[in-house]
């Protein structure tokens, strides 16, 4: 084709030009995000159906979640989203050091999120508010409170796994940034990582009020 003049190393052989490669990659990522939404969608479904069946129990059980920790985590995750977006912007402007700093910031906030989550979990474990048949807490009077904690642990657990996967990918693009693989012409992997990370944030934005605030 006509782009014979220049075929940079990061342009894969089967694409005609960068625009085609970038657009294809982004489209692929968005389609993948759709699958993530529906994966979590199943869990949101559980939340919806069981909340409709046991409204009093959900109201009662959700009071045992720590709103302060949940709110803090919301702030932490939004901040990490901001630093992620700024990392991409820095690379668009070719500021490599800034990009690395922002990515490190994102990693830091992600870690903080997990630490807070750890404290929440260990408290619940300690109290016997475990999912399903391991549930031993006796403070909740409504029927079947173990289901609320099943929903809570599966939803936040799957979300937590996504945070960990996100941290691995961010570390990877950070290393690649350090190795000078990216430039304002080619920063597609950081951008895609950003999309994934924002989705993790998006899901938390819904999880938080559903579980902590309205139960």
């Amino acid at each position: 084709m006509e782009q014979a003049e220049k075929h940079p190393s990061y342009l894969q052989h089967h694409f005609a030009d960068m625009a085609q490669q970038t657009d294809a990659a982004k489209l692929g990522m968005w389609v993948f995000l759709v699958t993530e939404v529906l994966l979590f969608g199943g869990l949101f479904g559980f939340y919806t159906f069981f909340r409709a069946w046991y409204p009093e129990m959900f109201m009662e059980a959700h009071k045992y979640l720590d709103v302060t920790m949940g709110t803090t985590n919301t702030f932490v995750l939004i901040t990490s989203s901001l630093t992620m977006a700024l990392a991409i912007r820095a690379m668009q402007l070719g500021k490599k050091k800034q990009t690395i700093a922002y990515l490190a910031g994102t990693l830091f906030f992600a870690a903080v999120f997990l630490v807070i989550k750890y404290f929440e979990y260990s408290h619940k474990f300690h109290m016997g508010m475990l999912p399903g048949k391991f549930y031993t807490f006796e403070g909740i009077q409504a029927a079947n409170p173990h289901i609320f904690f099943s929903v809570y642990f599966t939803m936040t657990g799957l979300h937590g796994i996504h945070v960990i996967i996100g941290m691995i990918i961010i570390t990877w693009v950070m290393i690649r940034t350090m190795r000078d693989e990216f430039s304002p012409e080619y920063y597609n992997p950081i951008e895609l990582t950003g999309l994934y990370w924002h989705l993790v944030d998006l899901i938390w934005i819904f999880l938080f009020p559903l579980l902590y605030l309205i139960g």
Binding site: K26, L27, V31, L33, L38, G41, L202
Partner: peptide, 26 residues
């Protein structure tokens, strides 16, 4: 988050359609 952080507002409108379809089917 979707419009600004994820650039949906400025990007190819196809991405918006793709993303919305997930919500519709959910």
């Amino acid at each position: 988050v979707a419009l600004y952080f994820m650039h949906l507002k400025y990007d190819n409108k196809l991405f918006m359609a793709v993303f919305l379809s997930s919500l519709i089917f959910l």
